[in-house]
């Protein structure tokens, strides 16, 4: 509505602009790049990262960080696969794992607030713990064979221009919609922004910091577990090393999406574009064919660096936090 509201959204607009720019550059360089088919594939291939990143957005908005996301994805995957081999159907196991993710996250959040320990170190402990548990469950790659898994991967919505919206992408977009409502239209969402903006003020304004922190990490854990479910069903297997370092990609997606790492400023919708930008870069480099895959990481690193510098500049110029 006003110019200043727009300024607050500048990082988000920048993200969308960068996404469109990279997409157009790709289109200029390669035939068939600028198509709904490529877009649909990027959505599907990156859906689990984006789902995890949506959860991480809440954690980062609250001024925290969650490093246990990647291990959660791996742990959920091997549990899904092993339970599948024991005859449980994917829907039941998925629900079980999401309850587990919620509870695990809630516990991390409780420790962080009640014992006043940095989230970095607590969730790092979570990272080690869950990864270790992956190997306790199985050390092999275990296939998921239940017929519902096949049914799930056959779900697709046709898009104009020969594009496909696969099941993972559909789950991701539904999660995104739910997350947007949670962030922007509930008291919980407002409280997350408040404690990320200024925890002490929020406390004095009547926000229950303990409950909000517990819920933030619980939501983070829930989305991470859902990401694990989507990943397991997408690859139709569980593998104890799956999702390694994925927490960092999730954080990168959130930051590229315009959310300040210091908390309090950002949009859940931005995370979608942040994740898509990372996906676009790898697709571009794969399209090139001659470039080493190391370039995916290099260009992601450069982009992330440039974005952080831009953030610092924006925060400084418009006093977003003061």
């Amino acid at each position: 509505m006003s110019a200043l509201l727009n300024k607050k959204l500048l990082p988000f607009y920048a993200t969308v602009a960068v996404f469109i720019a990279i997409f157009l550059i790709g289109g200029a360089m390669y035939n068939n790049f600028l198509s709904m088919r490529v877009l649909g594939n990027i959505l599907a291939d990156n859906s689990f990262i984006i789902i995890a990143a949506i959860g991480a957005t809440f954690v980062i908005l609250s001024g925290g960080i969650d490093l246990s996301v990647g291990s959660m994805i791996g742990f959920v995957g091997v549990c899904m696969a092993v339970l599948d081999s024991m005859g449980l159907d994917p829907l039941t196991t998925a629900l079980l794992m999401m309850v587990f993710g919620f509870a695990f996250g809630a516990f991390q959040g409780w420790v962080i607030d009640a014992l006043d320990i940095q989230p970095f170190i607590i969730t790092l402990a979570g990272l080690f713990l869950l990864r270790g548990m992956c190997f306790m469950v199985t050390i092999n790659s275990v296939p998921i064979t239940h017929e519902w898994a096949d049914l799930y991967s056959d779900i697709r919505i046709r898009l104009p221009g020969n594009g496909l919206l696969r099941s993972s992408a559909i789950v991701m977009l539904i999660s995104l919609a739910a997350a947007i409502i949670l962030a922007h239209f509930t008291r919980f969402g407002a409280n997350v922004y408040a404690i990320g903006g200024d925890k002490e003020s929020a406390r004095l304004m009547g926000v229950n910091v303990r409950r909000t922190t517990v819920l933030v990490y619980a939501v983070g854990g829930l989305f991470a577990a859902l990401a694990g479910v989507v990943y397991a069903l997408y690859t139709k297997s569980g593998y104890p090393l799956a999702g390694t370092t994925l927490e960092l990609s999730a954080i990168a997606s959130v930051v590229l999406g315009g959310t300040l790492l210091t908390g309090g400023v950002g949009l859940v919708a931005g995370t979608l574009f942040g994740g898509m930008i990372l996906g676009l870069i790898s697709t571009l480099i794969i399209f090139n064919g001659s470039l080493n895959s190391a370039w995916i990481l290099i260009s992601s690193g450069v982009l992330l660096f440039a974005f952080m510098v831009m953030h610092r500049f924006l925060v400084g110029s418009f006093g977003l936090r003061d």
Partner: peptide, 10 residues
């Protein structure tokens, strides 16, 4: 004691 990054309404 307010949250600077949030709107007046919020």
């Amino acid at each position: 004691n307010l949250i600077p990054a949030m709107t007046v309404t919020q």
